[in-house]
C-alpha cells in the first residue's frame, strides 16, 4: 500500500526466527514474504484483498489468500502461526481492535507497523495547510485514500495497554533513515513510523 516499508524488512527479519510459520496480512505483492522465505526459510502465507497483488504473489511462488482481513480471519484455527504481520496496513482496516485480537489468537506473536500521525511533518501540514489527507504518501484525497485510521504512536501504545497486550520490542523510524531502539521523550513528534513486536499480556 505504501512504498516505504522496505525499511521495516530488516527489523522484521531480525525478529522472526528461522523456519517459523508466518501469516502476512495485507501482504501486497509478496515482497516481504519472498524475502522471509529466502532469508529465514519461513512457511509463509499472505492475505491480500487486491486481485492484481494476488497474481503478483502467485508469480513469486508465494502462498496467498484473497480475503478481507476485517472479515475473514475467523477461519484460521488458534495458534496456526508463530508470527502474524500487519505491515503498513493498520491504517487501512476498519476494525483494528478486532484484527489485533485475531492476530494474537491465530499467532503467538504479532508484528505491527504504525505510521505516526503525530509526526512533526504531519502536525505542521495540518496546522499550516489545514489538510489532513496528503500525508498518506499516495497523494490520494480523503475520499479515496485507503488510509481510514489516523493514529499516533502514543495513542497506539495506549490501546495496546488497554487491550492487555505486551510490547516485546519496538523500533522507531526517524527521517534520514535513522532507526531508534529506545523511546526517547520526543519520539511521538519525531518518528515517522514505529514497529512493534507483540504478544498477549501475562496479567489479565
Amino acid at each position: 500500500m505504501y512504498k516505504i516499508p522496505a525499511q521495516n524488512y530488516p527489523v522484521i527479519q531480525q525478529w522472526i526466527s528461522a523456519g517459523s510459520r508466518v501469516l502476512d496480512l495485507g501482504c501486497g505483492d509478496g515482497t516481504l514474504l519472498s524475502a522471509l522465505t529466502r532469508e529465514k526459510q519461513v512457511e509463509g502465507i499472505g492475505v491480500e484483498i487486491s486481485q492484481d497483488m494476488i497474481v503478483q504473489c502467485i508469480q513469486k511462488g508465494i502462498c496467498v489468500y484473497q480475503a478481507d482481513i476485517d472479515k475473514d480471519l475467523s477461519e484460521w484455527k488458534d495458534d496456526s502461526f508463530d508470527y502474524v504481520i500487519l505491515n503498513a496496513t493498520l491504517q487501512a482496516i476498519s476494525k483494528p481492535y478486532r484484527v489485533i485480537e485475531e492476530m494474537l489468537r491465530v499467532g503467538r506473536y504479532a508484528i505491527i507497523s504504525v505510521s505516526n500521525f503525530g509526526y512533526l511533518r504531519n502536525r505542521v501540514r495540518v496546522l499550516a495547510q489545514g489538510r489532513v489527507s496528503s500525508h498518506t504518501r499516495l497523494s490520494s484525497s480523503w475520499y479515496d485514500s485507503p488510509v481510514i485510521r489516523f493514529v499516533s504512536l502514543k495513542e497506539f501504545e495506549a490501546s495496546l495497554a488497554q487491550m492487555g497486550i505486551e510490547v516485546m520490542d519496538s523500533r522507531f523510524f526517524l527521517p534520514l533513515d535513522k532507526v531508534m531502539r529506545r523511546k526517547w521523550p520526543l519520539y511521538n513528534l519525531l518518528a515517522r513510523e514505529g514497529i512493534f513486536k507483540l504478544r498477549k499480556g501475562t496479567q489479565e
Binding site: 502465507i45 486481485q51 494476488i54 504473489c57 508465494i62 496467498v64 489468500y65 484473497q66 480475503a67
Partner: peptide, 15 residues
Amino acid sequence: VQLFTGLNVRVSYAE
C-alpha cells in the same frame, strides 16, 4: 483451502 493448508500443501486462493 483450509483442508489443504492443514495437509501442508502450498495452496493459494483467489476469489
